[in-house]
């Protein structure tokens, strides 16, 4: 018995050591850094400062602005992505001729690297040479070219559109997988009881998709909450910091201003926020048993 135990431990140890190095140490070090003033360019000023970094952040208008931008970006993009993803998943779950081809097609945008996607949309939105202005003016919808990325709010919405185009298919793929696991006879029974499309959606499909929805939402929300690459490529946080999401704020503080302590404090706050959101979502959506009697 004892020998068996030893073997178990021996087998776990290598993975634990690796994880300790690549996960526990960086996380612990980040939290430790967040209590220090650690300025790469002013090493003489480095010191332990307790909660000073945190109190600075919470009072800073930049942080509040970034939090708002991030919340808007996450809320709007994930919600629209979810709705598009759900309905395309339902559509692709039907029997029709092009089904297999379309299923492959939806994976394509999702498989494009974010950087390539960002550059592509940057050109689509370009004021003078962009495809969007070209299309809209040829259709006669606009008389003058619009500078889509030129206002803080316009740029934010443009980045959201680029993000939706790429990421809504994630929901399609996950939800389509879950839809295929729902037995057909549930729908037949609902049909016999006289349920229409919407009733079937709300009474059968959605309740049975709950676990898949919860997992995909948590994954996408936490991903959108820390979005960085698409912002870096398309707007660099501008104009006038209108698209400076929290991750970009961390990047700017830690790697452009080289204030490591403050940067670590912001990323700790961001991590805590994502953790809270994830806990709420998994609890609300996954706790209840699925009940089809209602």
């Amino acid at each position: 018995m004892k020998k068996k135990n030893m073997t178990r431990w021996a087998m776990i140890i290598p993975a634990t050591v690796v994880l300790a190095f690549v996960l526990l140490y960086p996380i612990g070090n980040t939290i430790w850094l967040s209590f220090r003033r650690e300025h790469l360019l002013r090493p003489t000023m480095n010191a332990f400062v307790g909660f000073q970094n945190y109190s600075y952040i919470l009072q800073s208008s930049d942080f509040l602005q970034s939090l708002k931008v991030t919340a808007y970006f996450t809320g709007v993009s994930v919600f629209i992505e979810f709705v598009i993803g759900l309905f395309t998943a339902i559509l692709l779950n039907q029997d029709f001729k092009m089904k297999a081809f379309l299923r492959v097609l939806v994976v394509l945008p999702w498989a494009i690297p974010t950087v390539a996607n960002g550059v592509m949309w940057q050109w689509i939105f370009d004021t003078n040479y962009g495809a969007l202005n070209g299309l809209l003016s040829q259709l006669g919808l606009i008389s003058e070219y619009v500078n889509w990325l030129g206002t803080p709010f316009g740029a934010l919405n443009s980045v959201i559109i680029a993000d939706i185009w790429k990421n809504c298919w994630f929901f399609t793929i996950v939800l389509l997988g879950a839809l295929q696991a729902i037995p057909k006879n549930y729908y037949e029974a609902a049909y016999v009881d006289g349920a229409g499309f919407w009733k079937k959606l709300f009474k059968v499909t959605l309740p049975l998709l709950k676990p898949a929805i919860a997992i995909s939402l948590v994954l996408r929300i936490s991903e959108a909450f820390k979005a960085f690459d698409i912002i870096y490529i398309m707007t660099k946080g501008g104009p006038a910091n209108g698209t400076q999401v929290l991750s970009y704020y961390v990047y700017h503080t830690a790697f452009e201003s080289l204030r490591m302590g403050r940067g670590a404090a912001i990323s700790t706050v961001v991590t805590a926020l994502i953790l809270i959101i994830a806990i709420i979502f998994t609890n609300v959506l996954m706790r209840e048993e699925v009940d089809l009697s209602a």
Partner: peptide, 11 residues
């Protein structure tokens, strides 16, 4: 005001 600078200058 004058409208002589391309607004895309901002980006």
């Amino acid at each position: 005001e004058y409208g002589v600078v391309d607004p895309s200058s901002i980006t």
